[in-house]
């Protein structure tokens, strides 16, 4: 595993769980699991394998974070540019479905392809596109401050 992939995994959990302690524990577990199966430390891990391992670790550690309660923001573990309002993401992440959050993180932030996501999530690319559309629409409404303006038929 290369360091850029370790960075991707760390960012995925920090943004996805928004709790420094749990996020680093989940990321460390995922990285260790990938290291246990890789042939050489210099090889790139297959994206689908990385997504699958991260998803498994997410499911384990997501339970450790209580919903609708304030969490410890990962202030020391990441460097957020001043122009980014991370509170918007925190509001979105608080209520959005896990699968939507993971899909947005892997696709739009970490740049994995829909095919890799479908393989990693063991679903179809159509489902991935649907989750992406739904999630990004909800995120955009949060950015505009109109989360309640979502169409009843559009967001589940």
């Amino acid at each position: 595993m290369r360091q850029e992939q370790a960075r991707d995994i760390g960012l995925f959990f920090l943004l996805g769980l928004m709790d420094e302690r749990v996020s680093l524990a989940a990321a460390g577990r995922a990285i260790a699991k990938i290291k246990a199966t890789e042939k050489s430390p210099s090889d790139l891990v297959e994206p689908a394998d990385l997504i699958r391992v991260c998803r498994e670790s997410w499911k384990v550690h997501r339970r450790l974070i209580p919903r609708n309660q304030p969490v410890e923001a990962p202030t020391s573990a990441w460097v957020v540019p001043a122009e980014i309002d991370i509170a918007i993401w925190a509001r979105y992440q608080k209520d959005a479905p896990d699968e939507d959050i993971m899909t947005i993180l892997f696709s739009l932030i970490l740049g994995f392809s829909d095919v890799d996501l479908a393989d990693g999530f063991q679903t179809s690319t159509g489902t991935i596109r649907y989750r992406l559309g739904k999630g990004i629409r909800q995120l955009g409404l949060v950015v505009r401050g109109q989360k309640s303006a979502l169409s009843p038929g559009a967001v589940t």
């Binding site: 360091q3 370790a6 960075r7 760390g10 960012l11 920090l14 943004l15 680093l24 020391s76 573990a77 990441w78 460097v79 957020v80 540019p81 122009e83 980014i84 991370i86 918007i88 993401w89 947005i104 739009l108 932030i109 740049g111 559309g133 999630g135 990004i136 629409r137 909800q138 995120l139 955009g140 409404l141 949060v142 950015v143 505009r144 109109q146």
Partner: peptide
């Protein structure tokens, strides 16, 4: 418009970096 804003915001999140210690 919301989708465009959402994509733009998600794109901006790419610039977040992990601290050297955490990495």
């Amino acid at each position: 418009e919301a989708i465009q804003r959402g994509i733009s915001y998600a794109e901006s999140l790419k610039r977040i970096e992990i601290s050297a210690e955490a990495l």
